[in-house]
Design a binder for these strands. Sequence first.
DNA 1: GTCTATATCGGGATAGAC
DNA 2: GTCTATCCCGATATAGAC
Lengths: 191, 191
Amino acid sequence: MDSRELLVETMSDLMWERGYADTSPREVRERSGIGQGSMYHHFPSKRDLGVAALERNCADLLPAASELEGPGDPLARIEAYLMRPRDALRGCKVGRMTQDPQVVADPVLLAPVSAAFEQIHRSWVRALTAAVESGQLRADLDPERLAYTLMASLQGGYVLAIAAQDPAPFEAARAGALDLLRAAAPAGATR
Amino acid sequence: MDSRELLVETMSDLMWERGYADTSPREVRERSGIGQGSMYHHFPSKRDLGVAALERNCADLLPAASELEGPGDPLARIEAYLMRPRDALRGCKVGRMTQDPQVVADPVLLAPVSAAFEQIHRSWVRALTAAVESGQLRADLDPERLAYTLMASLQGGYVLAIAAQDPAPFEAARAGALDLLRAAAPAGATR
DNA sequence: GTCTATATCGGGATAGAC
DNA sequence: GTCTATCCCGATATAGAC
């Protein structure tokens, strides 16, 4: 792996662990083993490196979300994505950025975060719409809203798990969301 | 208001706005108008001031949550608390702390955060249990889980709203949660 | 209790040789 | 492209007078 690539990967990891504001160029150097001059050759500022690292972290989320639109019946895809293995105590590498004041204050840093959530939201909406159309969910439910609710169950689950330093609240939050979805099957549906 | 009180209040505000790690004693001094010596007389370190400010912010959340256990029918209390006016773009002054690496790494700073969420969770559980017992929610729903799901809808809603720089995702997330709760009324219930 | 002055350190970046 | 040396500033705290 070349230096540039290694720098981005290291910065991405650190931003997931500590956010942007609290990550220093020094840490990136030390963890990656890349020298000072080399680093500032590739990235003239911390912000430039941060943008590259953030774009990578945002891109990392998309393949899994595209499963929401894959084969299989809609509710099964929804359940699979909702319950896919996740490390609750590490949190979401994208969601975390919304609590970093330096990221939120900088439109260039915030842009990939907004874009990633928008794209995931669209995947959710399409899957939920399909579930309604196929009769797996009640027709009076709004897929747009529900998409945000389910995304929020995950993002908020991380918050609760980290506060408790225990994955249980995360697992309970998403399991409860699934319970509600199932309870929202149309009356009389066999499944 | 005395100096000590003013320092805590100022630090609380700054921690809500910017978190702990990214808030400097200098900002607290400048915003509060309290001098250097005075500040270090009352609080020997940033951390001491942070603990006091965080405890205040955590305490601020509890009165509203206690409404979950007030008068009125359970589902109405749940709805009132879920939909109470909240400034989505400011986020939660307690939930934000879970994304601050310096808070999470320090058990003394994290403790009031965990405790606050635990207490709010217990209020949610009691309200949801009452709703199940009074027949407003299906008996096969687990109040413990559901409590985390609803708390997460709020906490995650903030994340989505801040990412979008728009309160709409927050409003949609909680409205969708309420839709699901209503869809989870026992079959045949008149209300 | 409050003030001003001073100290130390790390974050972030630049300079210029190789 | 990479290295080492250096610079500047703000974060955090200490010192000691009033």
